[in-house]
Design a protein around this nucleic acid. Sequence first.
RNA 1: AGUCCGAUGGUGUAAAGGUAGCACUACAGUUUUUGGUACUGUCUGUCUAGGUUCGAAUCCUGGUCGGACUACCA
Length: 553
Amino acid sequence: MSEEKSLNFLEEIIEKDLAEGKYKYIHTRFPPEPNGYLHIGHASSIHLNFGLAKKYKGKCNLRFDDTNPTTEETEYVESIKNDIKWLGFEWDGEYYASDYFEQLYGFAVKLINKGLAYVDDSTAEEIAALKGNIGVPGTNSPYRERTVEENLRLFQEMREGKYKDSEKVLRAKIDMAHPNLLLRDPILYRIKHEHHHRTGDKWCIYPMYDFAHGQSDSIENITHSICTLEFIHHRPLYDWCIQQLEIFPSHQYEFARRNLSYTVMSKRKLLQLVNEKHVDGWNDPRMPTVSGMRRRGYTAAALRNFCDTIGIAKRENVVDLSLLEFCVREDLNKLATRSMAVLDPVKLVITNYPEGQTENLEIENNPEDENSGKRTVPFSNEVWIEREDFMENPPKKFFRLGMGLMVRLKGAYIVQCNDFKKDENGNITEIHCTYIRESRSGNDTSGIHVKGTIHWVSVAHAKTAEVRLYDRLFRVEDPSSEDGDFKDYINPDSLQVLPQVFIEPSLAAAKPGEHFQFLRKGYFCVDTDSSAEKLIFNRTVTLKDSWAKEQKK
RNA sequence: AGUCCGAUGGUGUAAAGGUAGCACUACAGUUUUUGGUACUGUCUGUCUAGGUUCGAAUCCUGGUCGGACUACCA
């Protein structure tokens, strides 16, 4: 336990519980519903639950909250497990709420026997109508006073499939006038003649969240059941069930879910983006999903560090996307191999360099890592450079190419521009330079110092690749709080595809998932769709660009 | 309207009655064969009104503002 870092409110509770001997060790759990893919908010919860267990030498279970067969699928189970592992966490037990269906059924029978639950024949509309409203008490259901025997028989028949969907429900008998709407005789079981991804057709009644979650926690002896703020109103019901059932008293604690600027986080909205093809699936690199971020090139370490940095609390929040990007750059800076790629090319001809001659230059792979070694980069009299690195009428602080200006070609020579060509539309088509023979990188005896260094790729040796430039998915910080539909705020430029980018030859061997820094352009990751025949790079994040800022002034 | 939760710079998060700190962002500068990295510095904050106290971001009371809850979803 590091005393240097201050404790968050959950750590304080846990340390108190441990100090007072309330528990010998703690047991947490991460309880996803397998009806969608994990996103960065889940990553935060995973990091919290698994992190707490690790810090206090306790345990953390993975439990799928699969009580609604309508929306849940095995495909999601697999992706969730995969994402958690990728994030670097291991669960102690792998459980499913559906494993407890028989036990849960028994709990319901116990409640009926105690006179605390009843079968209601009302329709959904009738139940809603009798529920009352915020500030308005509800009314008792006409079926509320059925005898224990009748309830037992009816509930049994529900299980046996005697009734159609929605014909009957099992309800807790609590208080129809309670100020907390959730305590107005909440529904415990509903009939759904549907195939469940794990129990198949064994059941046609399924417990509701409130009659499954707390009990599952209890069955697993979870000490600290951590969930998000919107469940705070459920806690009295959570406690009520545990108390009436007389089972292990797990406790629920709530924290505020983390929001990220320039994106949306709700599963419903993410599903919409996928279904309506605004993005290319759940793992589209623009999605805030774990799989999307992984494909984009974000690392697990960066994500973990991000979760650590934003911390947890109980107030509403929107975390700045720039913090996530900072964490990603920080990690990639240490591990990404540098290389050169020209995204928007223009030809530079070195007029005093022998045509047909090739030099193999040795360039460092990563100045941040001494052990990363060097690679060979071929140089010749014609190189591609970035169009934006040349200006016909450069401003004062432009440290790049323009008539008479000098720059160093990274790892090679200093060149000076003496001429350029334009087409009929005024576009620059070719830049002519002379190179300083004595300025070769590593043994520069020219005595010339230039302000700018630019990247390049030899025309004769260049390979090509597709590059996908990603930007934030939305134009506004909080799309959900804007007027109208959140989809109206999608950034139309969130993806820009460059079909043919010139890359240095060493990049041709890049494999899917590998990270690179394209010098001065950003961090890139080889896409999962990439192949030896057709290389595809995703831009993970740009480099900080103080020149771009300077220009905006 | 009822119940519950929350309020610290632009953002996120600390300070458990005693110097309002850290990170990101922004800005300025140093270093640099990436206008990257690294390093240095600067700006900006306790919702409000009372009260308790030698002393309040912290405790108490009132107010204000924001959020959640009215699914046979979780």
